[in-house]
């Protein structure tokens, strides 16, 4: 009977090196995504405080957020920042799926796609609100 060979550290090093760009892409997404979200949130909070306009008791449905933001509402900006933070891990999963596909790693590209499908169910519930 064939016993599988233990993996060598050289193979792990090679695999690790191939993933380096993917690590950097996900990190850049999180770093810049966090900055953008924090900026929108701060602007929303400052506007809310300046106008004495409290944040809403519930986030508006997705379709109503953009018109609210465009009308200059502080609560709309705060809702937008919260949803932006919530979408970042979904975007990261897309980046990882595409990254694995580019590396020719079809197994993990498909597994990442499966995660996106599961998340898609949750997002669909939110959009249907």
């Amino acid at each position: 009977m064939n016993v599988p060979e233990p993996i060598s550290t050289d193979v792990l090093h090679g695999r690790h090196s191939a993933l380096e760009p993917l690590y950097d892409q996900v990190r850049a997404l999180f770093t810049w995504g966090w900055r953008v979200g924090a900026l929108v949130l701060v602007v929303g909070v400052v506007l809310a405080l300046a106008r004495g306009e409290p944040p809403g008791a519930s986030i508006d449905p997705v379709g109503e957020i953009l018109p609210t933001v465009l009308s200059g509402s502080a609560a709309g900006l705060i809702d937008l920042a919260i949803l932006w933070f919530m979408i970042l891990p979904v975007l990261a999963t897309i980046v990882v799926a595409v990254g694995f596909a580019r590396l020719g790693d079809r197994r993990y590209a498909l597994i990442s796609l499966l995660v996106l499908i599961v998340l898609g169910f949750s997002i669909t519930l939110a959009l249907a609100r």
Binding site: L41, V45, P54, P55, G56, A57, S58, I59, A75, I78, D79, I82, F85, M86, I87, L88, P89, V90, A92, T93, V115, V118, L119, S122, I123, L125, A126, A128, R129
Partner: peptide
């Protein structure tokens, strides 16, 4: 890394049910 993706799945379900309250989320964040 995982907990972010997991919690997004949770947060969207709570959002769908009107249970995300910015007046609690903002001071908490």
């Amino acid at each position: 890394f995982m907990v972010g993706v997991t919690s997004v799945a949770t947060a969207f379900v709570f959002y769908a049910n009107g249970k995300l309250a910015p007046d609690i989320i903002v001071p908490a964040v």
